[in-house]
Design a protein around this nucleic acid. Structure first.
Lengths: 248, 248
DNA sequence: GCAAATATTCTTGTCGACAATCTGAATACA
DNA sequence: TGTATTCAGATTGTCGACAAGAATATTTGC
C-alpha cells in the first residue's frame, strides 16, 4: 500500500511527547488522551483556577485538532466533576465546594485508614519497593522545601500504598480525593509559603513500617492519626485565611 | 445570583420519554443523555450481558441520530467502567470480575456501614419520609416475590439512606457498588428463582429505626450485620452454582 | 496443499460545516 | 426613564463524510 504521495516527514522523532510535538503529528486515538491529561493537570495545579472558561474552539486551535477529540476529553473531565457544563451555554472549571468541606475530610480520613489497612494486609514485596521510592521523593521535596512537590509526592506515596491494598473501588475514590486535595492545598500554597513539616516524613516511615510488618490494627490507627493531622493542618489554614478571596 | 425562573415554555409534553418519542423528535442536548440512560439500564439489567459488542453505527440507526451523541454516551459509560473500548477495534460491555469479588464485598460492606452511620448523624425529617417510602416499595417487592424488583428497590432504599448522610463522595461510590451488585445479582436471579427473605424487611426496619433515633453506633453495627448477611447470601449462590457458565 | 502476502471489510477516530440556543447589547416603545 | 423586544455574536450540539487501523477473506507463490 505505497500510497505515499504525501510528504509525511516522520523523520527522527527525537522530541519527547511535548505539546509542540503532538501538534505536528500524533497517533490516531491519542488526541483525546493528550488533551485530557494536560487539561487535568492544569486544573489540579490551578493553572486553570475554578471558574475558568473552557472554550472548545480555542482548545482546538491550541492543540491543532478538531473539536471532536477535544469534546471527548471534556466529557471525561466532566464525568470526574472537574469541569461543569452549562447546556448550550458554556463550560468552565468546577468550583471547590468550601461549604461541604467536612464531607471531603470525612472521606479522606476514611480512605487513608482503609487503604493503609488493606496495604498491610495484602501488599506484596514489590509493592514495598515502589512505596519506599515514593517516600524518598516526598522526603526530598520536604528537604527542598518545595511545597508543590510535597503535595504531589505525598499524593503519589499514598496512592502507591492504596494500590498495594488492591481494592480498585477504594483506590479510585482515594485517587479522586487526593486530586481534590491537590487543588485545595495549592490554593493555599499559592499565597502562603508554608510547608508540611518534617513530622510527616517520620509518620510516613511509621506507616511504611507497620505495613511491612503486616500489623493491620496499627496501620489503621497510625493512618488515622496521620490523616487527622493533615486535616487539622488544612483546617488551620482555613481559619488563618478566613476572608480569603474565593471565586464563587 | 437569582436562580432560573425563566418562563421556558415547558408546555404540556404529556408524552413520556420513551424511545419511540425520542426517535421522532428530541430536544437539543438530550441525545447523549437518552442513549446513556438507556444503555446503562440495559447493561445493568444484563439485557446487554458482559462481552456484548457495542456498535456505534447500529446504535446510531436505532436511536435515529448521528454517531456523535452516541459516542458521547459511550465515553461516559467507559468512564464508569461499564463498557470497555479496544482502541481502533471494538467496544463491548465490561465483564464482571469474579476473581476479585472479595474487593467488591469489602467496599460494599464498608459503604453500607458508613452511609448508614452518616444518615443517623445528619438526616433531616424529610429524608425519613423518602426512606420510609422506599422501604414500602421493597416490602411490596418481597411480598410479590419479585426478585428483580427486590434488587432494584433494595438499591433505591440504601441509596436514599446514603443521601440522607449527605456525603457525595460516599454516595457516588456506593451508587457504583450498588449498580455492580445489580449486575451480579441479576446474573443469578436469571437462572435461580431464589428470593431475598422476609428477614431483610425486618432488618431494614431496624436500620430505619436507629437512623431515626440518631443512634450512630447502633446504626453502624446493624448496617454491618445487614451487609454481611447479604454478602453471605451472595456467596452462598456462588458455591451453589460453582460451575456456572460465565461469559469471559 | 499450505504459508505468506495482499485485498477487502468493518469499526473506530477525526474532520469541517451547519444549526440551535443562550448572552448581551442595541433598539423600540410606553 | 424604564421595560420589553429584537438583533448580533458566541458557543455548544449534531451531522455526514472520510481516513486509519485491525481483523478477516482472498489471492499468490512455492
Amino acid at each position: 500500500m505505497t500510497s505515499v504521495d504525501r510528504p509525511r516527514q516522520e523523520e527522527p522523532e527525537k522530541m519527547s511527547e511535548t505539546e509542540a510535538n503532538v501538534r505536528t503529528e500524533r497517533k490516531r486515538g491519542s488526541g483525546a488522551k493528550v488533551v485530557y491529561d494536560l487539561l487535568r493537570d492544569e486544573i489540579l495545579d490551578l493553572a486553570l483556577p475554578p471558574g475558568s472558561p473552557i472554550d472548545e474552539v480555542q482548545l482546538a486551535e491550541r492543540f491543532q485538532m478538531s473539536r471532536t477529540p477535544i469534546r471527548e476529553a471534556l466529557v471525561r473531565l466532566a464525568g470526574e466533576g472537574l469541569i461543569t457544563t452549562l447546556p448550550n451555554r458554556s463550560t468552565m472549571v468546577s468550583n471547590i465546594d468550601f461549604l461541604n468541606m467536612h464531607t471531603f475530610f470525612d472521606a479522606l480520613v476514611l480512605m487513608y485508614r482503609v487503604t493503609t489497612r488493606l496495604a498491610a494486609q495484602y501488599h506484596r514485596p514489590e509493592d514495598l519497593e515502589v512505596i519506599a521510592a515514593r517516600q524518598q521523593e516526598f522526603a526530598a521535596a520536604v528537604r527542598a522545601q518545595d511545597a508543590l512537590a510535597m503535595i504531589a509526592t505525598n499524593a503519589a506515596l499514598h496512592l502507591a500504598i492504596a494500590e498495594a491494598g488492591r481494592n480498585p473501588y477504594f483506590t479510585v475514590l482515594f485517587s479522586r480525593l487526593l486530586d481534590e486535595g491537590r487543588r485545595i492545598l495549592r490554593l493555599y500554597y499559592q499565597s502562603y509559603d508554608d510547608r508540611l513539616p518534617q513530622r510527616f516524613v517520620e509518620e510516613h516511615d511509621e506507616i511504611i513500617a507497620v505495613i511491612a510488618a503486616r500489623d493491620v490494627d496499627s496501620a489503621d490507627r497510625i493512618a488515622r492519626e496521620h490523616a487527622e493531622q493533615i486535616v487539622r493542618q488544612i483546617q488551620k489554614m482555613f481559619v488563618r485565611e478566613d476572608r480569603l478571596e474565593v471565586p464563587l
